[in-house]
């Protein structure tokens, strides 16, 4: 099975961020970057499928020079080769524009399966996988925790809300958006890093792929949220404090 995994390099989770002078993105020099978490799970799923059924795992990432780091990391963990779409202007493309770049690079590979992480940790739009499916003309399913290969294609376990799950069958080729937590991630090894040195990373520029860059949605600006995360101690009698807590959990934290 030929599997392509779309991965993204994102600012490290705990990075302290500052807004850049233009007010449209963060000051990237301050920040260290890492592989997006759900993409790591997508990669893990791909590697396990390969281990079970054979085939090839190709990772693809769009981004500037530094994004090469996550491609090498993926190769070290067991991917066979990489495709790096070199683009410094991703900030000016919307999710559709980025997905078009990826789709243009994926199409000629004729994959059996395309995996993407459910959602990025930076923009959090959570759409790339599904848009890719539409652009490639493949069926898809998202929030996937487990993948089984069947005679007819795939049977996947999809997460629903509030502790419910669902099994879905779909034919190949297909696109799956992988939810974090379905598998146990493997750690990078010294042996993997050494072996990765000889693996191929193909570079493609956005220009070559000829994808449309005009956005339909633009990020006008970014700002710090009004409330910084800090502990709110709720005062009053047990009854008052409890009522206040329930109110906060429902309408401020929105977790109930």
């Amino acid at each position: 099975m030929k599997i392509i995994v779309a991965i993204k390099q994102v600012p490290e989770r705990d990075a302290q961020v500052r807004i850049d002078p233009v007010g449209k993105w963060i000051e990237e020099l301050d920040v260290q970057f890492a592989l997006n978490e759900s993409d790591a799970y997508a990669l893990e799923e791909a590697l396990q499928l390969k281990e079970k059924h054979g085939g090839e795992v190709i990772v693809i990432s769009a981004g500037p020079e530094r994004a090469g780091q996550v491609i090498r990391e993926a190769l070290a963990k067991g991917a066979d080769r990489g495709i790096h779409i070199e683009a410094d202007d991703l900030g000016s493309r919307d999710a559709l524009g980025v997905a078009r770049l990826l789709a243009a690079a994926i199409q000629p590979e004729n994959p059996d399966l395309v995996l993407a992480g459910l959602q990025s940790e930076d923009l959090g739009l959570g759409q790339t996988g599904v848009i890719l499916a539409e652009l490639l003309g493949f069926p898809h399913s998202s929030l996937i925790l487990h993948v089984d290969v069947t005679a007819k294609g795939l049977k996947v376990k999809r997460e629903l809300e509030e502790g419910w799950f669902q099994s879905i069958e779909l034919p190949l080729p297909a696109v799956l958006a992988i939810q974090s937590g379905g598998n146990k991630l493997r750690y990078a090894t010294l042996m993997g890093i050494k072996r990765a040195k000889t693996k191929e990373v193909r570079r493609a520029s956005a220009g070559e792929l000829g994808a449309d860059a005009s956005p339909v949605v633009i990020l006008e600006g970014i700002s710090l949220p009004q409330k910084q995360r800090s502990t709110q101690i709720l005062p009053g009698s047990p009854k008052e404090a409890s009522a206040a807590l329930v109110e906060k959990l429902r309408f401020e934290a929105r977790v109930l």
Binding site: E12, R13, D14, A34, L35, K184, L185, R186, Y187, A188, T189, L190, M191, G192
Partner: peptide, 20 residues
């Protein structure tokens, strides 16, 4: 170094220090 050791806690520690 060859990835032969598979341990939930150990893997978590390594992943935490790979990126954090």
């Amino acid at each position: 170094n060859t990835g032969a050791w598979d341990d939930d806690h150990g893997g978590k520690l390594f992943l935490a220090l790979e990126r954090g």
